[in-house]
Amino acid sequence: MTEAELAAWLRLHRTAGLGARGAAQLLGVTGHPQAALDANAATLERAGLPASHRRALDTAATLDVDEDLAWARQPDHHLIPVGGTRYPPALREIHDPPLLLHAIGDCELLQYPQLAIVGSRHPTPNGREMAFEFARHLASTGLGIASGLALGIDGAAHEGALASEGVTVAVAATGLDRVYPAAHRDLARRIAQSGVLISEAPLGTRVTRGAFPRRNRIISGISLGVLVVEAARQSGSLVTARLAGEQGREVFAIPGSIHNPLSRGCHRLIREGAKLVETAADILEELGQQWRAAPARAAAATAPHTPDDAHTALLAAMGYDPVSVDRLVGRSGLTPEAVSSMLLILELQGHVATVDGGRYVRTPQGDRDSE
């Protein structure tokens, strides 16, 4: 695509008050962004748009987008219009796809099947570890992990995918010339190096409250499904889950203690029809034939995880018969929280399995690893 064509996309994208839906209506009539910028009142009427948009388009047509084009000339910086071949195919299917995406990193990864993992910005330690381990395990199967770069569950999900050398996509709420939250500046840098950052927001856009729902529709829109790990009853993660349902995506939720306020959002989703998730296999089974691992990337990520010394010791304490968490606490001398967390990791890695009564048993792989 020529810079003149990109400039037209950028000007249309920056047209105040038009929005992604209005721009799509206009492009449906004109077929090209420059023609959309030049649309007369009759063309606007055919597109179902008010004549007042002509003034906005007049202003947009004179915008200086040289800084945007200079940004796109930098290594691994990309501008991806909705009609482009590098645009995420799943995102194009939603009713209001972004007109233009800014991207930093390997934009070919946007073609990978994605699972979104979202949740509280202030998770419990167990919630953070669940997000990390689910992401690490699922990314090792070839699924990309999408999230919103926020503190808490989002960050843990990105970290888990990076730890498995898998694919991760971070959807930002600001322009990509800044990082929000600032505490994730290093995480954003690492995602840009081995994954991809994307944003609908034009460069220079600061964070606003209204930016998060718009970002959330992209997180769910690029994904086959959304997994909610921990969320309060009133939570932005529930907005993402609602959008996923409206977009025809799968919604998954991990249940938790009835005493944990961050379990209430997940329990609400389950009551409303979300799939209850106990293991990563529950997600892979539900997605079924909707996804395929990309061999070149997945090959580096599918090496089996070997338990560390602490996990090997817990495997040894299990013996060869089904055992409860309470019995393992007594045998190991660890706290119930530590045992539960370690069992989650071992289960995701395929070293243990759950059986009736909430007990755990070593798998054949776990037997080999404890020898």
Rank of each mutant, 00 (worst) to 15 (best):
G175S: 09
A188F: 09
R249K: 07
L91G: 04
A183G: 15
G210R: 14
L187F: 06
R233M: 11
T312Y: 06
A170P: 08
R86W: 08
Q25E: 02
A47R: 12
G236Q: 08
H305R: 15
A338N: 04
E200V: 09
S147V: 07
L10G: 00
M130I: 11
Q365F: 10
R128K: 11
G142W: 08
G28P: 08
I145F: 09
S120P: 03
A244Y: 01
A131W: 05
A24Q: 15
G288P: 07
H95P: 06
A299F: 04
G245Q: 07
Q349V: 03
P98T: 00
L262K: 02
A294G: 01
D68L: 00
A201H: 12
D369V: 05
A139F: 01
L203K: 05
V355W: 03
A39F: 02
G225Q: 01
R217K: 03
A146I: 05
I80H: 13
V82E: 13
I104G: 04
G160Y: 04
S194W: 00
A188L: 11
G248N: 05
G333M: 01
G225F: 03
R73G: 10
V352S: 07
I258W: 05
I94M: 14
T306I: 13
H95F: 07
L269P: 12
P81F: 02
A231H: 09
V169S: 11
L269S: 12
G358N: 05
V323Q: 00
G19K: 12
D177H: 12
M318E: 05
R331M: 02
I104V: 15
E230D: 13
H102D: 08
S324R: 03
A103I: 09
H13K: 09
L10M: 03
L115S: 01
Q25S: 14
G152K: 10
L287K: 09
A298N: 08
A231W: 01
R14Y: 04
G83F: 08
D106W: 10
G204N: 02
I145N: 04
L37V: 08
H122P: 01
L69A: 12
R215Q: 07
G245C: 03
